[in-house]
Amino acid sequence: MEPIIRIENLCCLHRGKTLLTIDRFDVRRGEVLAILGPNGAGKSTLFKILCGMRSARADTLEILDTPIQNLSRWSKDRLRVRIGYIPQELAGKCEMPLTVREIVAIGQTGRKGLFRRLGRDDRKKVDHWLDFLKISHLADRPYGELSGGEMRRVLLAKAMVQQPELLLLDEPASHMDLQTREQLVELLDELYRQTGLTILLVSHEVEIIPACCRRIVLLHQGSIIADGPSQIVLTAEHVKTFYGNNVTLLARHNRFMLVPRILENTPTGSTVKKSL
């Protein structure tokens, strides 16, 4: 499969501090990968570099076959149309009176270009993704009245309407309760099954990693410390580095969960199988 992201010898500095150094990082079309790391590991920085919102020095830095280092502002805008990036912040200004439908339609605005109106086909696409993400019933509600989980799905719909070739999700499950999170994980699985889209997600939680994700990258203090299939990457040692001594990782059907270590030794914990 052709590479969709190619990075070689990347270094991102900010005020003399190194935020991110990557020797080599490739993503092929159709891959789903999770980038795990504690806060401040450089996860969001990586995403910002990928969509041209932060500059970095690199020998190679290509997204969707486009070297982005010396790209003009205009060309960067054109490139962003092909990338669906959902940042961590929800843009959740309360009282935002625009309706969900209007906000999802923003995804088409860039693709359409200046001076062209959105037509019936565009509205159909909006409806399709509202339906797919199970938020059709919210279509005419103002965005400001939604819950955090609903907002996240609206932003996902907005990104999908963009018809992206690459989906970047930054901490998609932050501030979500268990049920909402599981709904989102299922949706991501379903999305991948139907579209085969390349999906990158960054998180500090292992619970958000959907089953369709076959590759995990561990980011620690601005550099990649492990990259590969989950069984190889999520070793006891790495879990200890990331989450401390007091937790154990459980794995089943390519889903993961962290539990306190106490559970291993107590009678109630005996039913919990240690998978790794």
Partner: peptide, 26 residues
């Protein structure tokens, strides 16, 4: 009238407008 859809995106969020590939600077 000319920039209705772009301004709507900007009204929502300048960041999200940028991410949708809108020529925000213009």
């Amino acid at each position: 009238v000319l920039f209705y859809k772009e301004m709507q995106a900007l009204m929502f969020s300048r960041l999200h407008a940028t991410l949708a590939g809108i020529h925000v600077a213009v």
